[in-house]
Design a protein around this nucleic acid. Structure first.
Length: 404
RNA sequence: GUAGGCGUAGUUCAGUUGGUAGAGCACCUGUUUGUGGCACAGGUUGUCGCGGGUUCGAGCCCCGUCGCCUACCCCA
C-alpha cells in the first residue's frame, strides 16, 4: 500500500467540507473589502524566498522543499504566499502604476520540511490577503478588522496580539541597543539565544525559555524606541482598535518570523489547538516590493492557517436535501433514468441502479441524507406513477411520472 | 535534529502471571414478502505494523526496524 508522504494529509467528508467552508467564508469577507483573486505558481525560483523571507529565517535555512529541476534551475516549493504575490506584482509592473491601489487574496498549499505535529504539516494551506499602495495605518487596522470579520463569520474565538517592528529609521539603532543589552547578559541566555544574537537578535525576544524571558523583562523595548512616524501610527492603530471595540494585547516580544515585516505586526492566537497556536498573522512590509526589484510600494498583508482553523470551526448542521430514486424491479430502472436526468436540472439526485426492496431504498435514502425517497415498484410501473416519501414530514404521495 | 507515547477488525479500543483473537460502533440479513431512523435476533470483517530471537507455545517477553501522534525548535 502506498501512503501519503509524511506531514501531508488527505481531506474527505466532513473535513474537506470544513476546509471549503473556511475558504469560501474568507473569500466572501475579503471581497467585501475589495480584494480580488490572485493565483501564483507553487514552484518558484529559490532566490525569491532567500531575498524575501530572509536567509536568517529557519524557513529558508532548513525547511524548504528545494531542488534542481531538469533544466538545472534552483527551484523551491513556496513555503509561504506573500513572496510569490509580490513577485507577480512587480513582474506585472503594477509597481509603476503609482497612486493606484491593488488588493489581492489567495489561498493554496504551502510547503515546509518540518517535523510534523499538531497544527503543523509539511503541506499546509493558507488563505491570505495582500494590499499594495496604501501607506495609511487605517489600512493596517482594516486588515485586522477583516480577519476579525472572517473569524466572526466562522464563529471562532481568538486573542489578538499587536506590536510595532519599527522602520529603517528606528529599527537599526534599536537593534544595536538590544545587541548591547544581550551581550551583557550573554552568559545567562540559552544556547539558541546566543546564536540568535548574531543571526537575528530580535528573535531572542520571543524565546520560549523561561530563564531567558525573565532576563528579558528589563531589555530595551522597541515600542519605547520608535521614531515619531512609527509611534504615531502605532498610537493611531491602538486608538482605532479601541474605538471599534476590538480587544487586543500589546505584545512587545511579538516578532514576525519572516524578515520582510516592518511597523505593524499582529498575530491571532487560539489557546485550544495545542502548542501551534497562531491561527493568523501578518503586518506591514513596506520594503519588500523594493527588495524584489520594484519601485518602493507600501504594503500590508496577512495569512491564516486553514488546518489550524479547521480544529476550531463548528460546521452548521447539514439538512436533508434532494431526491433518492430507486426501483424495486430490475425492469423499472430504465424508467427511472430519464426522471433522474430531468430532476437534476433543479435538485440534487441520487439514483440507485440496483433493484431493492422498499425498506432497503428508504435506508439508502437515509444514507445519502436525501429529503425525498422516490420509488417505482410493481404498482407504479403498471400505472405510470412514482411513489414519493418526504422523509422529514413523513408524508407520502403517488404522482404520474410525467409530473415528477 | 532531540525527547516521550502509541501501532490488534472498516473505525474506536480491550486483551490478566505467555495457553484456541475480543467488545462497542459501522456494515449485511431477518423479525416486517411495499414503509427509513428505534428495538430485538443473527451474520461478515484480522499479515495483532514488519523482521528476527527466547519458548512446547508469543498480541503479550527480548533485539532490530518502519510508521503515526505529542512536545522542544520554528511558524500560519
Amino acid at each position: 500500500m502506498i501512503n501519503a508522504l509524511r506531514g501531508m494529509k488527505d481531506l474527505t467528508f466532513e473535513e474537506s467540507e470544513r476546509f471549503v467552508h473556511i475558504v469560501t467564508t474568507a473569500i466572501k469577507v475579503s471581497k467585501k473589502y475589495g480584494y480580488s483573486y490572485i493565483e501564483t505558481p507553487i514552484l518558484e525560483e529559490t532566490k525569491l524566498f532567500k531575498r524575501s523571507v530572509g536567509e536568517s529565517s529557519d524557513i529558508v535555512g532548513k525547511e524548504m522543499y528545494q531542488f534542481m529541476d531538469k533544466g538545472d534551475n534552483d527551484v523551491c516549493m513556496r513555503p509561504e504566499g506573500t513572496a510569490g504575490v509580490v513577485r507577480s506584482f512587480v513582474q506585472a509592473k503594477l509597481d509603476r502604476r503609482q497612486n493606484e491601489k491593488f488588493k489581492f487574496y489567495y489561498y493554496g498549499p504551502m510547503f515546509r520540511y518540518e517535523r510534523p505535529q499538531k497544527g503543523r504539516l509539511r503541506e499546509f494551506h493558507q488563505f491570505g490577503c495582500e494590499s499594495f499602495g496604501e501607506a495609511s495605518v487605517y489600512e493596517d487596522f482594516t486588515i485586522i478588522q477583516m480577519i476579525g470579520d472572517i473569524f466572526k463569520a466562522l464563529g471562532i474565538g481568538y486573542d489578538l496580539q499587536i506590536n510595532s517592528l519599527g522602520c529603517p529609521e528606528c529599527m537599526p539603532p534599536y537593534r544595536e541597543k538590544l545587541i548591547g543589552f544581550l551581550t551583557e547578559c550573554k552568559d545567562e541566555l540559552c544556547e539558541d539565544c546566543n546564536r540568535r544574537i548574531d543571526t537575528n537578535p530580535i528573535r531572542v525576544l520571543d524565546c520560549k525559555n523561561e530563564k531567558c524571558q525573565t532576563l528579558l523583562t528589563n531589555s530595551p523595548k522597541l515600542i519605547d524606541n520608535l521614531c515619531d512616524s512609527c509611534e504615531s501610527d502605532f498610537e493611531k492603530l491602538v486608538k482605532l482598535l479601541k474605538s471599534e471595540n476590538i480587544d487586543y494585547v500589546v505584545d512587545t516580544n511579538l516578532v514576525r518570523g519572516l524578515d520582510y515585516y516592518s511597523k505593524t505586526a499582529f498575530e491571532f492566537v487560539s489557546n485550544n489547538i495545542g502548542s501551534q497556536s497562531a491561527i493568523a498573522g501578518g503586518g506591514r512590509y513596506d520594503r519588500l516590493v523594493e527588495f524584489l526589484d520594484g519601485k518602493p510600494t507600501p504594503a500590508v498583508g496577512f495569512a491564516l492557517g486553514i488546518e489550524r482553523i479547521m480544529e476550531l470551526v463548528q460546521m452548521p448542521e447539514v439538512e436533508r436535501e434532494g431526491y433518492y430514486l430507486g426501483a424495486m424491479e430490475e425492469s423499472s430502472v430504465d424508467t427511472l433514468f430519464p426522471l433522474a436526468s430531468k430532476k437534476r436540472a433543479t435538485d440534487k439526485v441520487t439514483l440507485e441502479y440496483a433493484a431493492k426492496k422498499l425498506k432497503a431504498h428508504l435506508k439508502g435514502a437515509d444514507k445519502v441524507n436525501a429529503r425525498y425517497c422516490a420509488v417505482i415498484g410493481e404498482d407504479e410501473m403498471q400505472n405510470g406513477t412514482i411513489w414519493i416519501k418526504d422523509l422529514v414530514e413523513k408524508s407520502e404521495t403517488t404522482i404520474p411520472q410525467s409530473d415528477f
